[in-house]
Simulated scan of single mutants.
Amino acid sequence: MVENRDRAREYDAVLGGQNPPPVDAAILGGLQGVKKRLANPEVEVRIAALSDALKYGEVGLDLVIQALQDESKQVQFTAYYLLKNRTELKVEKHLDNVLSFFEFDAIAVNKFGKEISRRPEIARCFTEDLGNGAFLEMMLIPGGTFRMGSPETEKKRKYNESPQHKVKVPSLFMGKYLVTQAQWKAVAVLPQVNISLNSDPSCFKGANLPVERVTWYEAVEFCARLSQKTGRNYRLPSEAEWEYACRAGTTTPFYFGQTITTELANYNGERTYASELQGTYRNKTTPVGSFPPNAFGLYDMHGNLWEWCADSWYDNYRGAPSDGSVWESDFSELRVLRGGSWIHYPADSRSAFRHCNFTATMVSYFGFRVACFAA
């Protein structure tokens, strides 16, 4: 075999490359150099090392596979892009057996509702088979810390969105979509846990439309039956988890930016929020997945249906937990709803906007999505 003189050998020293300063410093080359760089605390160094790893056969391929579990989302995505078109059986099995990868674009708009950026994103998920041809996609929401509530400068903010406070949310899985009517029907025929369920409660009919006209107790029963079937602890998200997942790293009124339009979400567009043009009023729900997702790969977090959360209602955040957990009160008949709906104006769809209603309320603009622990 002819030796490639340009390729670093096991213990060669190489110069600079894509490593951080000092730019001209010598680093260990070859496979040992790749391993050392993959252990570097700098994300950019680990990313640059991944392509080099594939030059070293099976051992290098194993290093890239291991990088799918890296703490950095950017490193995970780089590893995924390097592996997704490879045909080795162990690669295919690993991508199939751990978590699937979902590719999409995250969109941002300015106050006029005009798109100002579109960036490719990848989120990780698993799919639950509910039976009867229905499947539930659960997105991995990475843990993190955020400021819950709205700043005093936010337009249309309410007193109950304050005081802003720091919350640390552990990683979790959350439904990619609102629970659909097909999913509801599949779970409604499962053995009863606490209460009975109407298999077809919705006003607007359609298998891929979100289920509505369900009470808070019925949403909890859905989670209980799903948990019993799957062995996972399905539940309604806490209010903090919901807002954290909705924002997906943003601090603007909407995860799209300074405003939204009826091309991005289903709400009553007869009023505007910022400087965008007046939109349409569809006067009904829309199929899940009709509009762009946020950076976590979640759809319809703004508009379509209000979403039941697990928490009791409080008039403000004084004394709220800082760990993302459910906040219960002695009076549990008022529960939190988030996200706005097809019938409400855009300000009500803001990431920080809070709403509540009685647990037995059953209307055509209340629905829910499910969550479960990542561990």
Rank of each mutant, 00 (worst) to 15 (best):
L197R: 04
L197F: 07
L197H: 02
N198M: 08
N198E: 15
N198W: 01
N198K: 15
S199N: 14
P201R: 11
S202N: 05
C203G: 11
C203L: 15
F204G: 00
F204H: 15
F204N: 12
G206C: 11
G206I: 11
G206M: 04
A207T: 15
A207R: 12
A207F: 09
N208E: 14
L209T: 09
L209I: 06
P210Y: 07
P210W: 02
V211C: 05
E212G: 03
E212H: 15
R213C: 14
R213P: 02
R213W: 06
R213E: 13
R213A: 11
R213T: 13
V214S: 08
V214E: 08
T215F: 00
T215W: 06
W216K: 07
W216R: 05
W216N: 00
Y217T: 12
E218D: 09
A219D: 10
V220D: 10
E221G: 05
E221Q: 05
F222H: 01
F222C: 00
A224R: 15
R225F: 08
R225P: 04
K229S: 11
T230C: 09
T230G: 08
G231C: 04
G231M: 03
R232S: 13
N233D: 14
N233S: 14
N233E: 14
N233M: 10
N233H: 12
Y234F: 15
Y234R: 04
Y234K: 02
R235A: 09
L236W: 02
S238L: 11
S238I: 09
S238Q: 02
S238M: 10
E239R: 01
A240G: 09
A240Q: 14
W242D: 10
W242Y: 12
W242C: 08
E243S: 03
E243D: 04
E243I: 06
Y244P: 05
A245W: 06
A245T: 08
C246K: 01
C246F: 06
C246E: 00
R247V: 05
T250Q: 12
T251C: 08
T251E: 12
T252Q: 13
T252A: 13
P253A: 01
P253S: 02
F254M: 00
Y255T: 00
F256D: 05
F256R: 02
F256H: 11
F256M: 06
F256I: 03
G257L: 01
I260Y: 05
I260V: 15
T261M: 11
T261A: 08
E263T: 14
E263F: 02
L264V: 03
L264D: 09
A265C: 13
N266C: 14
Y267H: 13
N268L: 10
N268Y: 07
N268M: 10
E270K: 14
R271M: 12
R271S: 15
R271N: 13
R271H: 12
R271T: 14
R271K: 13
T272Y: 03
T272E: 04
Y273M: 10
A274H: 08
A274G: 01
E276W: 00
